[in-house]
Computed example of a mutant assay.
Amino acid sequence: MLNYIKAECFKTFKRIYMRNTLLIFVLLAIAVNVLFFVAFRSSPTNSQELIRTSLSVIVPMLLIMVYTALIMVDIVFSDEYKYKTFKNTLSFGFTRTQVYFGKLAVSMIVTAVIFSITLAAYLVSLFLLLGFPEDMGLIGVVFNRVAAAIPLYIGALCLCNACAFIIPNNTAFSFVYMGFLMVPYLLFYTLTLLNPAFTPLFGTALVTPFYTSIMGLDIHVANMGDMMGVGFNVDNIENILNAALLPGTSVAYCLILGLAYAAAATLIGLAVYRRREIR
């Protein structure tokens, strides 16, 4: 199992797909601060306000990262179905269970590497271009939200990994994964707005905690436009800071929901994959 993971990591990190993805993520992270730096140089805007504005972008970006789990899994599965190389791995003596969990482990490693380097690039460019925030608690708030979102990312990766193993087509499993994220959320959100009694059902959607816990939005008074735009206001980071650390109930909510998705997706995905014919 460990040898398989090492081999997959070596193969994955050598791919141009992996390198290009990392480069794009890093450049986008740096570009955010470059844009604010240009704005600072061309206008008398207070630098601390620019820092807060830049940081305010990070929290809602955590939601977008759930959708980029599709890219992380696709990096690991790159061209496996196109060139039909899955059967080669099994012919080397690895079991389907080892292959399944090996791919999942490599997906998590790839995600951790890309996101860690991207976050580091963002913070370094922030400090170099805009300076250090007077209140370092703002940085702590960002890391607090990132930590709370980790179980949700694990759930998303497990769900996407299951889709990739069940559906032997990169394009098809991509659409199915996006459907699992968006359809339940939009459906349950609409039902909740019509009748608050559906709130518990809405809470089972994987992306819900990013609005209700990570960004602290009240779904009972918000409309769809507010929910999609929250976090991009200049004062949003201040509102989040007022809440300090996430309460224990919110952390538990993110943890339980993320791990529940991870367990369910893994059990179903592995069960189907072990019975599916590999061509």
Rank of each mutant, 00 (worst) to 15 (best):
S250P: 07
N144G: 14
A39S: 13
E134D: 14
F173Y: 15
M227Y: 06
K11M: 02
A244G: 04
S43V: 04
K87N: 14
L22R: 07
V26H: 05
L138K: 03
I58G: 03
L267M: 13
S56N: 07
M224K: 08
P184Y: 11
H220G: 12
A39L: 07
L267C: 12
D226R: 00
N3D: 00
G131W: 09
M182C: 13
N170R: 10
A162W: 04
L186S: 09
Y253M: 04
I237T: 02
T266F: 03
S47N: 02
V99Q: 01
P44Y: 05
N33W: 05
L35K: 10
V176K: 06
T89V: 13
R52K: 14
G155L: 03
L28A: 15
G155S: 09
G269L: 05
M61C: 05
T68N: 11
V251F: 06
T171G: 08
L152Y: 03
R279H: 11
V230M: 05
K84Y: 10
L22E: 08
D135Y: 05
P133K: 10
G155D: 10
L159M: 04
T53Q: 12
F25I: 09
L130V: 03
Q48G: 13
Y83M: 07
K6F: 10
Y273W: 05
N223R: 02
R52P: 06
F165A: 05
P168Y: 05
L157W: 10
N236F: 12
I150L: 13
I219L: 10
L50A: 12
S250Y: 11
Y261I: 07
D135M: 02
I109T: 10
T199I: 15
A172F: 02
L270K: 13
L104Q: 07
L194K: 08
L194F: 11
F115C: 06
Q98I: 01
A112G: 09
I114T: 13
V207K: 06
S54C: 00
P151Q: 06
R145G: 12
M136D: 00
I24S: 13
D235V: 09
L90C: 02
V32G: 02
S125C: 15
D74L: 00
A271L: 08
A120H: 11
L181Q: 05
G258L: 04
T266I: 03
I278W: 02
C254H: 06
I139T: 06
G203Q: 12
P133Y: 13
R52A: 12
L259W: 02
G269A: 07
V251W: 13
A156M: 06
S107E: 03
P200M: 11
T249S: 15
N169I: 01
V251G: 03
G137R: 11
R279D: 03
R96V: 02
S43G: 04
L259N: 03
A69R: 05
Y177L: 02
L119T: 13
T89W: 01
R275A: 11
Y189S: 04
S43W: 01
N239T: 14
G203W: 01
V146W: 13
S78R: 14
L63P: 00
N236V: 09
F92K: 01
A112K: 00
A105V: 14
L241Q: 14
V110Q: 06
Y211I: 01
L257M: 04
A29S: 14
I64P: 00
A162P: 00
L259P: 01
V73R: 02
L257F: 09
V221A: 09
E49W: 00
R274L: 10
S42W: 03
I114N: 08
F13N: 08
M108P: 01
P133L: 10
T266R: 03
A31Q: 11
A162N: 04
Y189V: 01
